[in-house]
């Protein structure tokens, strides 16, 4: 793997490609080997380490990011294939002080434990809510079925996404169960 951490690149060597990827709204010009996986560009090249790697066969979804708004597994796309596209990672969800409703939902409904699947899970949830603002429980489970979680047993994740959907639509989010 090879990439430059600066954008001041003057010469393109034979075995690398210069690409421009817009990440979380900022265009980034990087020099990469063609074989470099997008997830490694994000994590190591751009130091956006919220996107995680949980498998080597595209099953777990811990590396899920948005590619022009669609959820993709960034372990299964080459960085060069993202040339000219817009990538959104967990770091681009919400702002440092204001959380996206999905982030807030995960916190409020205890939709995370170790936190390792969380960024990918939230990106898949974000993509769902962008195309379906009022999903059913079944919709949520299907939308997240490409994302494995080992800690939560999924139920609170489903609640988190439904909470976020309510909040986003301006509905009163369901209060926590009275325990």
């Amino acid at each position: 793997m090879s990439f430059s951490k600066t954008v001041e690149i003057t010469e393109t060597s034979a075995d690398t490609r210069r690409i421009t990827v817009t990440v979380n709204g900022t265009p980034r010009v990087v020099e990469v080997e063609p074989r470099l996986l997008l997830v490694h560009l994000l994590r190591e090249g751009l130091a956006l380490r919220g996107t995680h790697i949980g498998c080597d066969t595209t099953n777990c979804g811990a590396c899920t990011v948005l590619h022009d708004g669609n959820p993709i597994k960034s372990c299964t796309m080459l960085a060069v294939q993202a040339d000219g596209h817009e990538i959104t990672t967990v770091e681009g969800l919400g702002t440092p002080s204001e959380l996206d409703p999905v982030q807030e939902g995960f916190h409020r409904e205890h939709g995370l434990q170790c936190g390792f699947c969380t960024p990918g899970m939230m990106m898949a949830a974000r993509a769902l809510l962008d195309r379906e603002p009022d999903p059913s429980e079944e919709d949520v489970r299907w939308a997240l079925s490409g994302n494995l979680c080992r800690c939560t047993g999924y139920q609170n994740i489903v609640k988190a996404v439904l909470w976020a959907a309510d909040k986003q639509r301006g509905a009163q989010p369901a209060e926590e169960d009275a325990r």
Binding site: L48, R49, G50, T51, T89, V90, E91, L93, G94, P96, L99, Q103, E104, F106, H107, R108, H110, L112, G115, T118, P119, M122
Partner: peptide
């Protein structure tokens, strides 16, 4: 609610 969540939901 968990104190841990703040960093994890931000990818931090």
């Amino acid at each position: 609610l968990r104190k841990e969540d703040g960093r994890f939901v931000r990818g931090r």
